[in-house]
Structures are given as C-alpha cells and as structure tokens.
Design a protein around this nucleic acid. Structure first.
Length: 484
RNA sequence: GGCGCAUUUGUCUAGUGGUUAGGACGCGGCCCUCUCAAGGCUGAAGCACGGGUUCAACUCCCGUAUGUGCUACCA
C-alpha cells in the first residue's frame, strides 16, 4: 500500500516552527517513499477562528518549499480538506458509535462538569468524567435519553472508555506504549454545537483520507489511546503512529512565544533563507549521519527515515541557526541573493542600484555577514559616498605624518585609469616599497577615506567595485575635510 | 498530584555489548592576513545516579533523580 501522510494544523494565525518541522517530516517521509502528502485544516474549534489563518499557513508552508499533493488549494479525491466543511460526516459516523455502544449521550452542563471535577479533585481522585453518577444514557436510561433528545436538550456524545484495561499501541519512534483505561477520560466526541472534537474528526478523516502514517507532535501521545479505541470501535485498521519529540526553549520547556520567535514568518522577516530554516529544523530531532550539517531538500528526502528520529526534545539554538544562515549566504548564487537584496535597498532609501552591482557587493561582503540585511548597515559606502568617518579611529591612529604618507599615493591613484584590484594593488605596492613603508601603513588610512570605516572587505577589491570616479570624489572630500 | 514520555559535553547530535566516545554550533589558543570576517589547525567540555544481567556495559533490565507532555464541549 502506498504511503499517505498528512499535516493537520489548526488555523491559529501563523505557522509555528514546530509545526513546520512536523510538516517537513511528513513531507520528507512521503517523498522518500514515493507517497502522498496531504494538507488538512483542523478548524473544528469555532471559538478560536482566526481570519485568513489558513492562507497564512499555506503561504508559510509554500515559502519553505513544502508542497502538498492534496489539500484545500489543490483539491483531491478525499476532499474537502477543511474539517468544518465535512460537518455531516462526523455526525453520521458518531451515530454508528452510539448504535454499537462505543459512545453515549451525555446531558451535563458546564457547571455540573466543573462541580464534578472539583469533587473528584478534593477527594484526591483523577478528575475524569464519572459515567456512573452524571447525566447520561447510563444513569438516565433509554427512555429518558430518547425523551431529552426529542426535546432538543443540549447534549454531547462521549467515548465509552473501558474501565480497567490496558490500551496498547505501537509507535514507530517510541516502541510499545501502554496506558490503562482508568487514566483515559470519556472524551467528548461531538460537542453540543454539533462539531466534532479533534479526536473524533482526526480519526474519521485519517481513515477516510486513507492515511497510512500519523506523524505528529509528542503532545498527542497521551491521547492516542482514545484514537486507538475509535479505530477499533469502527473496525478500522489503525494507521502507524510516530510521535515526534518536542522543540524546546532554552530552558527546555515546550517552544513558546513568550521566550522568542516561534512563527516561521518571524524568521523569514529576520532574513533567514528558507533553505536555512528547512535544513536547520530538519536536523532538530533527526540526523542521517552527523558528519555534516548542510543538506539540500533532495538529500533530506533521500536519507530520511522515521526510525532514526530521536525520542528526546531538542532545544532550538538560535546561534547555530545564525551560523547556518551564514553558510547559506556564502554558498547561495549571487544573482539570487541580489534579487532578495533589492527590496532592502529600497527600504533603506537607496535607489538606482543595478542587480549586477548588488551582486558584486554581496560577493565582496558575504563571508563577513550572517544576513543579507546586514550588508547596508555594514557597507553603506558601497552605495553612497561616506560623509562620516570613524572618530575613534581618527583619534587613535591618524598621526601627524599620516597625510604625508598617504598623499603621494593618492596622487598616484588619482592618475590611474585602471581600477582593477590587481592594478591598484601593484601600484600601491610600488609606492610603498619606494617609500620604505609597509602595505598596511597606507591601507588603513585609505580605507578610512574610501569607506569611512576602519573595518571591511579587501581594500583593493572594494575600490574596484566603488570605481575610479567615486574613489576620486572620496579622496577629495576627505582631504577637504581633514587635510591641509 | 496522577499518568505518559524522555535523559551522550552549555546546545544540536553520531553511536546500537568490547571505540583513545566521533562531528557541528558556541567558547579559548595558534596559523593565515591590509582591518574585520571567512578558512585551516588545535584546546577545554559529555554517556544523570544507584543497582543488576554479562568475561565485558554509554549501549540490555529494574529502580531513583531530573526534565517535559497530557490531564477541556482546544488543537
């Protein structure tokens, strides 16, 4: 049977990086096995609807390069792929559960449930639904239940969980897992608004969408017994389960908004490349060999296996993420980078820069940046003549005789037509040798004149890119300002 | 609290009964060098603890500790 997996987020307004990893692992697994990866939107909680959330989710996912074979946008044979549009299906299946005795009607209101939980908690007992004392099919009887239903009294449908029986299932990542029925609540399956809860909808949809492997976060592990009970009650074959370890904050708690950025969109906005994010997140909790760090999507696909996924949670280490982005910055094609860079120029109010020129600047500077966005703050002089010069450097290194040393060179360079870095280097070297100086004696003052700064990329390469005309403007400006 | 799940350097990890416990980020040093980076070399840093099983345990079993998740008519 061919592999079918799904990513089933609820539309909360953004894509969590943990969600991205879940989606990615589903995608990698599907592609590795030549199967299908499906997107399903789990919007059964009508109280938490967020405008445009689904669009944002899909946008982030497709930015990251995760494309689905079936889903709300592309459709498919098992649609619709949005749970709120599958409303009738759930009621229908739920009735089968009631007929077979696997589920039952309950009529308690919120206050009654709260009171029950209080009572149980105070008695030191597990605060789960007490089937034997509350208002439900078992305590009310057949007649009364029918009557209340006929009167349209608000009600829910609950799963009848066996009282004292181990519920077992096998997880690909964790092996055999067993939880006793006494720990499992009689979960609400159908809410009083007629919508299913996650647990019911999830099982029915996974079955009707022919999902073979359920790959999801570890937070679902303890509710898997409920799902297993449902598959069994319906007489359906259970899918294989794989519960992924959590992504953690620095303090090891579940990665959350309060301790930093969690939305994929945040990282995108900060200037991380999609390749970085995908590569990094893929290696959190899984590693093919650990002898290297950089993998293309295709390489991830070909080496992925669920068996190699770790069991323990992984801290999301921003420092390593930054390092990885720098790796991509160095490796990515300059023309592609130039395209990404153009909007940043615009935002900085710098106009009239060609893609070609931008690409040259990026090539010059990329190995000393972590983000493309750092180029302008670090090297604005590539786009505009500097008018400010580092005061600290001037005070510390600009000596009485510095101008005397540099002026002859400036005069030589002003008369040079050839501003290739090689020629600039040769001419400077000639001068330096004839004057009994070292290259570094003139390079730093030169750097200050041309860039206004004391640090930067190779000086002659920089001058070549800035060009003869602008270099001359800058010598003159500097001499006017500081020389005499 | 109960139950589940986990535990290799600060962090991400390789490891699958016998290894000098390997790699990467970060940190320190050295080299390279026109500065800053990048790069190369290198150093410090780890199998949570206690019992077993075994000729032999990081690897298997059992406890303990610690962490974490769940415990909703949320997903």
């Amino acid at each position: 049977m061919s592999v079918r997996v799904r990513f089933a987020p609820s539309p909360t307004g953004y894509l969590h990086v943990g969600g991205l990893r879940t989606a990615l692992y589903n995608y990698l697994f599907a592609k590795h096995h030549g199967g299908k990866c499906i997107l399903r939107i789990e919007d059964t909680d009508r109280t938490r609807l967020v405008e445009n959330a689904t669009e944002m989710l899909i946008d982030s996912l497709s930015w990251a390069g995760i494309n689905f074979d079936e889903g709300p946008v592309q459709g498919g044979d098992c649609g619709p792929y949005i749970q709120s549009q599958r409303f009738d299906l759930y009621r229908e299946y739920c009735n089968k559960l009631i007929d077979s005795g696997a589920a039952y009607y309950a009529f308690d209101n919120a206050e009654e449930i709260d009171a029950m939980r209080d009572r149980l908690q105070k008695a030191g007992l597990n605060p789960k639904y007490d089937r034997t004392t509350m208002k439900n099919h078992y305590t009310l009887g057949e007649e009364e239940t029918k009557k209340l239903l006929a009167e349209n009294v608000p009600h829910v449908v609950r799963l009848k969980v066996p009282m004292e029986e181990d519920i077992r299932f096998t997880d690909i990542i964790r092996g055999d897992v067993s939880i006793n029925g006494r720990e499992v609540d009689d979960q609400v399956l159908l809410k009083s608004d007629g919508f299913p809860t996650y647990h019911l909808a999830n099982v029915i949809d996974d079955y009707s969408m022919k999902i073979t492997h359920v790959i999801r976060g570890e937070e679902w592990l303890t509710s898997t017994p409920k799902h297993v009970l449902l598959y069994d009650a319906f007489g359906w074959e259970r899918p294989q389960f794989a519960h992924l370890p959590l992504l953690l904050n620095k303090d090891k708690s579940k990665l959350s908004k309060r301790q930093g950025d969690v939305a994929v969109e945040d990282y995108r906005a900060k200037g991380y490349f999609k390749d970085t994010i995908v590569n990094f997140v893929a290696l959190l909790g899984w590693n093919p060999t650990a002898d290297r760090e950089i993998y293309t999507l295709d390489e991830l696909i070909s080496s992925f296996s669920l068996e190699k996924v770790n069991k323990g949670g992984a801290v999301f280490d921003i420092q390593k993420l930054e390092w990885m982005n720098a790796q991509y910055l160095k490796a990515l094609d300059p023309d592609y980078l130039a395209q990404e860079f153009m909007p940043m120029l615009e935002e900085a109010g710098i106009n009239g820069i060609s893609n070609e020129y931008a690409a040259k600047c990026i090539t010059l500077f990329k190995e000393r940046l972590h983000f493309l966005s750092e180029l302008i703050p670090n090297a604005r002089f590539l786009f505009e003549n500097p008018t400010e010069f580092e005061e600290a450097y001037l005070e510390k290194h600009w000596k009485e005789n510095t101008m005397d040393i540099v002026m002859p060179l400036v005069n030589i360079l002003k008369n040079e037509e050839d501003y290739s870095h090689q020629n600039l280097h040769d001419k400077t070297k000639e001068y330096v040798e004839s004057a009994g100086l070292k290259l570094k004696d003139v390079i730093h003052p030169l750097r200050l004149m041309i860039t206004g700064r004391s640090v930067g990329a190779g000086m002659f390469e920089t001058m070549e890119i800035v060009g003869r005309e602008k270099c001359i403007q800058r010598y003159d400006y500097f001499i006017e300002k500081y020389g005499k």
